[in-house]
Nucleic acid binder design. Structure first.
Lengths: 148, 148
DNA sequence: ACTATATGGTTCGACATCGAACATTATGGA
DNA sequence: TCCATAATGTTCGATGTCGAACCATATAGT
């Protein structure tokens, strides 16, 4: 049977789904109370890409529906980790900023995850990581275009 | 700032999460009514790996909690796509089998997804796919061991 | 054989996630 | 200027997902 099912691309998606499960579980086991991976991911995103993004921009960055991002941001705001300010030029929109508590929390969580991940990191060749990362980024663009 | 945050492994997890979102949305847009990616994935798994697996084996294969698999299997059985039989030697357990309808459904869904994916598949070098797949499988094992 | 512990699966309650419909504000064209 | 349409974000209802507690059966130790 050499139909589409045998295309390794499907196997790739399968593997990606499984790693997603594993990494999600790994992160969430190291976050307090009811915090979930998207909470941490958004804090991290704001650090890396910059604060002052709009909710829609963040939703698009993670490829999740905008109402999902509304919910995630509400959780972060409730915990005092982000601050929501009006958009300077578009009154429909908002901008998202980290609070000091948010920066501190992200730093602590990152340190904890990094510490527990440290034993296994040396097993991965940086070159392989880079190569995989490059391919996945191109795959993301391909999927994004196929989204119609 | 060259702390753990800059480790490309985290970027890798991020990219994996995004591609997971995209591929999930892509698949589910091509499945009927209330069917969801795990439904399709399980059917596919039974075809590839073989029928007669137990729910727990399947849950471990996808790295999801066993109660989540209970729910997914219930959905498949309700739709008549799988059949649950008692385990021959362990009365706590069960075995999962595809029905004819399940095999047919999986074939149709696979064909539809494959057709819509066809335009973008040529953009990916088979060699890159293989390389990525190999690395991700090793990454999965690393994470699995780190699971404690 | 008997009990303690482990294992497979389900139930339950809490919560994340999503599509669809909605309110509000922007934008573009007559 | 005015209206139709688009864009941003929220609300609502339905459902997926998960951890914890729970049954039923197996296994191990004595």
């Amino acid at each position: 049977m050499s139909d589409d099912a045998s295309n390794p691309v499907f196997e790739l998606f399968n593997e990606i789904g499984i790693i997603n499960q594993l990494s999600r579980a790994f992160f969430e086991a190291r976050l307090p109370n009811g915090m979930v991976l998207p909470h941490f991911s958004v804090l991290n995103h704001l650090m890396r890409v910059g604060e002052g993004r709009t909710p829609l921009q963040i939703a698009r960055a993670f490829q999740v529906p905008k109402n999902s991002m509304t919910h995630t941001l509400a959780g972060l705001e409730k915990r005092g980790l982000i601050e929501v300010r009006p958009h300077p030029s578009d009154r429909r929109s908002k901008t998202i900023w980290l609070t000091d508590a948010g920066r501190a929390f992200r730093g602590e969580a990152m340190a904890r995850v990094g510490r527990d991940m440290a034993p296994v990191l040396p097993e991965m060749e940086p070159e392989d990581v880079q190569q995989t990362l490059a391919f996945l980024k191109s795959l993301r663009e391909v999927l994004d275009r196929a989204r119609d």
